[in-house]
Amino acid sequence: MVTVRGEIDLYTAPQLQSGLLNALEDGARRLVVDMSGVEFCDSTGMSVLLSALKRAREHKGTLELVAPKPAVRKILEVTGLASVFTIQDSLDALPLAAGSGSTA
C-alpha cells in the first residue's frame, strides 16, 4: 500500500516513482495506491503510475488506485487512463493484505 499526498508533478513524481519501484522490488505484487490525499496529478505523474502498472503486470501483479478526488478522476478520464487503471472508490472496500507502507 502506497499512500500519496499533495500534488504529483514534474518535481514530486520521482519520489512517487521510487516509492512504487521499491514496493515492487520488495516483492509486492498487488500495488494499492491511496490517492485520497492527492490534489493533482500531471502527465509526468500519470506516466509514473503507468510505468508502475506495466512493471507490476510483468510480474503478474496489479496496480489499483483508490479513492481519487474528483479533480484527479477527471484527469484520468481526459487522458483515457480511467479504463486502464483499476480504480476503487474507497479504502473500505479493500480486503487488504499486509504490505509495505510508503509515502511520496
Binding site: M46, L50, E77, V78, T79, G80, S83, V84
Partner: peptide, 10 residues
C-alpha cells in the same frame, strides 16, 4: 472526444 491512453502505453 473519446480519449485513448497515451501513445506507447499498450
Amino acid at each position: 472526444v473519446t480519449p485513448s491512453p497515451p501513445l506507447g502505453v499498450f
